[in-house]
Nucleic acid binder design. Sequence first.
DNA 1: ACTCATAAAGTCATCTGATGACTTTATGAG
DNA 2: CTCATAAAGTCATCAGATGACTTTATGAGT
Lengths: 225, 225
Amino acid sequence: MRAISRTNLADDAVEAIRSDILGKRWAVGEKLPNEASLSAMLSVSRGTVREAVRVLVSQGYLETRQGSGTYVRATSDAGRPLTMARRASLRDQFEARLALDVEAARLTALRKTPETVAGLRRLLAERGSYDGGDQAAFIERDLAFHKAVIAASGNRAMIEIYDFFSASIADTIAATLGKDIPEPDMQAHADIVDAIETGDPDRADLAVRRFMAPVLAALDRMILS
Amino acid sequence: MRAISRTNLADDAVEAIRSDILGKRWAVGEKLPNEASLSAMLSVSRGTVREAVRVLVSQGYLETRQGSGTYVRATSDAGRPLTMARRASLRDQFEARLALDVEAARLTALRKTPETVAGLRRLLAERGSYDGGDQAAFIERDLAFHKAVIAASGNRAMIEIYDFFSASIADTIAATLGKDIPEPDMQAHADIVDAIETGDPDRADLAVRRFMAPVLAALDRMILS
DNA sequence: ACTCATAAAGTCATCTGATGACTTTATGAG
DNA sequence: CTCATAAAGTCATCAGATGACTTTATGAGT
């Protein structure tokens, strides 16, 4: 079955370069390697590099100057194309995420393979439990797990929406709150994977809701206080 | 130093093709001439055509299928500035909508007031049943009802996401399929309102899923055929 | 006639190589 | 030291070829 067959070099190149841009590999105004170098770095032809670069130019990330080079115009997609639900409250954003998390878990349960389940368990092991150390890193590992559940559903629309939200939320959380948000424990995470493994969408649904309930409750307390 | 230095064939090609799309030269779902033909029509090389087409794909106007051709995905730029999940398949988009519909119904059930329920009943009455008349108008009335359910949840994030999808999907549905998609009947709609009125989120959840099931089944049949 | 596996044709995906246009840098005469 | 000019670097565009995938045409077998 198809699911996440990315068979498209140019799109891969777009994401690779965009990722480097968002990761501040090059500063704003800085020049990228020339087309031949990018071609070698990404192991694709120069024509494919050009297709990728032109997409990023059309999206405002890059700028090309003939005879000179290709330059970074923006290292963040903040103000850019998605003026969306960013102004929505944190509570609203979490609820939207919950909607995606639940449905993705249901779909993943229906479409799971032994490989996807094994992959989720591996990510969960890598995530570990929060030991009070680097919080940002832990949140990142945690998000990686949840994004993997979405990805396993094979639904591109949900993947993209979730990506948008996770970036936005990570932003908000990091800056405004820090603590006070209860981190669902290992067992709650494992329950989701177990439910997916059974292939029962209703169980997967329930596991995700149980997982998110404490977080939403904590948000309500913060809003009321 | 000119600001309007149009000396860029690929950008010219993008605008030429986009203009033809917005001008409805090709309907949604219709196939464009192949790359060689476009190359000849625009008097540019095939590589330049590919760069232009890829930009339009990234912006949600077109869709390419290897071995088959390039197809129009949307003939309007209404939904901008969300360049997001437009490339997802129709099935994926419906699944994402289902996720929002279900969660919104749950939240609405929890937060309902007599006024919101009355408002939904009124919209449902206005919608009526499909009598074989103006299809676009009916779809619009139908969407109005579902958007009202989302709106009643009070969740701004979901409202905005839903708006984005409904524009995109209305586009696609109207042009590509027309019939063959079963329209859930009056009773299924009424069941949702009834479930919301009870205030039981699980019942609301179930009512929405029952409502959408036939549509998804129909989509599967179309995909398989 | 009808079904269905298979061949053939059509189309996008990608690579390689080459030429032109424009910009930046190096050069050297004055 | 200045500055016109050559040289080098880089993007813009084209042409041709091969591979991968999809759609359509074909024809044997029933």
